[in-house]
Design a protein around this nucleic acid. Structure first.
Length: 493
RNA sequence: GGCGCCGUAGCCAAGUGGUAAGGCAGAGGUCUGCAAAACCUUUAUUCACCGGUUCGAAUCCGGUCGGCGCCUCCA
């Protein structure tokens, strides 16, 4: 098997991925802070890590996939206070919608989804050990991490403490020993969730929860930690500082970060409102189309996502994922044709060496830092080979190599499992796409069918001009006809 | 100000030292009453620009221009 190489943010290069325990992979991914509907940036992120997990399992590894839920957080509290709601209710509501989105996108559930609110004792214990080691200090019920106490600070993000101190954007708090020190524990304020602690009532700071939960479920030196590129600093840098200051040993071996979704060449940002929710996008296209679209670009690259609006600012479409959905139609139709090849058309003998070459190409592409764009290139070639086999089977002349048909079906299956697409039945998928387009265009199904019937009559009477006029009439409403020996079918463009 | 990424055809996008994958769009063809679908052929002497290293550079080095990210909540 080709050795898997992953880009490690820590070393800034691709490295062989060698888990600490052979045959296992222990992974922690920073999960959502549920305070608003999830957007397509979340979708991309978690589809990427889902693809990683699927691929590792494909390689035969036993994966422990931990993805936390940060259900104690400033933004949740703010949201709760705005709506006069309990913070826990806000977190629970948005976490449920997050899970629904992830399920729709075909993301496998993580093995563990720990919540911050369930791990306060672990967090408190970790903070206590940091204080005991002189790496943290208390101030009026707050506890801060002493960055100076951890010599490796900045090793992940390539930052120097002096540069951070000089940065104009570091929050100044005169009580802190050093402006770069960050909060591990925040003293309770009125109207906030709080837990008792050795430093009085309060709640965890932002970064400590991931250290505590990753260490609890995976232990020191686990294999891979993932998240969005923006988490490199300060979040992951601080996780390393907290964890390693406490343990004295490396926290995690490989750091993986995904690139951002951009709109109009600029990062999507919740603060500017310039983002789109997963559920809104899924009203326009199949979830698999979104997945397919993500796979067209390498996971570390930025991905531009556009949508069109009418004069009222109402969203009218998502050109790029609509293109992806059309591509999916082709692939599902191909899958169907491959399945429809009758056994009587198959002959023994050597299959095409091309298909085995494609399988190798797919394996090597995935092993090379999850190069899904290359996998899609191989899939395109497989589609052509498969359609060619189907064409030959339909021509009723000469045999079709059984070995090739079987190999093509299997490779379709493998690629589909790796990328999390093409797993549905073609009839179901194509039917849903058609129903959605029908609803959107307002064209009546019965009208289409009556027109087809009229055309059939015209054709049988050789009135081809009339038949063509009907087809043009349908085409004007984006209804495409396809004649075959089994009759006429239609498709909405 | 500090750190980092990117610039490949009309559009999207792989490729990080050995002579430019793939998709969309375009052109021609096979098939078809005509179409559609499918398949075949075709579309970058060239990888922002200028120098350098090398037998050889889209790939390495230096510089210029352009775009973007992080340093503040963020996936």
């Amino acid at each position: 098997m080709t050795e898997l190489r992953l880009y490690n943010t820590m070393t800034q290069q691709k490295e062989p991925f060698r888990p600490r325990t052979a045959g296992k992979a222990d992974i922690y991914v920073c999960g959502p802070t549920p305070y608003a509907p999830s957007h397509i940036g979340h979708a991309r992120c978690y589809v990427i890590y889902d693809t990683l997990v699927r691929y590792l399992r494909h390689r035969g590894l036993t994966v422990s996939y931990v993805r936390n839920v940060t259900d104690v957080d400033d933004k949740i509290i703010k949201r709760a206070n705005e709506g006069e709601e309990k913070a826990t209710d806000v977190a629970e509501r948005y976490f449920a919608s997050f899970l629904a989105d992830m399920d729709a996108l075909g993301c496998l559930r993580p093995d563990v989804q720990p919540k911050v609110s369930d791990h306060i004792p672990e967090i408190v214990a970790l903070i206590e050990s940091l204080i005991a080691k002189g790496a943290a200090y208390e101030l009026d019920g707050d506890v801060y991490f002493a960055v100076k106490a951890f010599p490796g600070y900045g090793k992940l993000s390539g930052r120097k403490i002096e540069d951070l101190r000089a940065g104009a954007r570091v929050e100044r708090d005169e009580r802190k020993r050093d402006p770069v020190d960050f909060a591990l524990w925040k003293a309770a304020k009125p109207g906030e969730p709080q837990w008792s602690s050795p430093w009085g009532p309060g709640r965890p700071g932002w970064h400590i929860e991931c250290s505590a939960m990753a260490l609890k479920y995976l232990g020191n030196g686990f294999d891979l930690h993932g998240g969005g590129l923006d988490l490199v600093f300060p979040h992951h840098e601080n996780e390393i500082a907290q964890s390693e200051a406490a343990s004295g040993v490396p926290f995690c071996a490989t750091w993986m970060h995904n690139g951002f979704i951009e709109t109009n060449k600029a990062k999507m940002s919740k603060s500017t409102g310039d983002f789109f929710t997963i559920s809104a996008a899924l009203k326009h296209v199949e979830p698999e189309a979104l997945r397919f679209f993500f796979h067209t670009v390498h996971y570390r690259s930025p991905l531009n996502f556009e949508w069109t609006t009418d004069d009222d600012g109402k969203t009218t479409g998502f050109p790029s994922i609509e293109d992806a959905e059309r591509r999916l139609e082709y692939l599902y139709a191909t899958k169907q044709r491959l399945a429809d090849i009758e056994d009587t058309r198959l002959v023994d003998g050597p299959g095409s060496a091309d298909i085995e070459a494609l399988r190798k190409r797919v394996e090597e592409a995935m092993a090379d830092d999850l190069n899904t764009a290359e996998v899609l290139a191989a899939l395109a070639d497989l589609g052509k080979l498969a359609n060619d086999l189907a064409d030959r089977a339909e021509r009723k002349k000469g045999g079709v190599p059984k070995a090739s048909v079987i190999a093509a079906r299997r490779l379709f299956e493998t690629i589909g499992q790796l990328l999390g697409v093409l797993g549905d039945s073609p009839a179901a998928m194509l039917g849903r796409i058609q129903a959605r387009r029908l609803a959107r265009s307002g064209v009546d199904r019965a009208w289409i069918e009556s027109k087809i019937e009229a055309r059939k009559t015209a054709r049988s009477e050789k009135r081809f001009a009339d038949a063509d006029a009907i087809r043009d009439e349908l085409l004007a409403r984006d209804v495409e006809l396809k004649d075959s020996p089994q009759g006429t079918t239609w498709r909405l463009r």
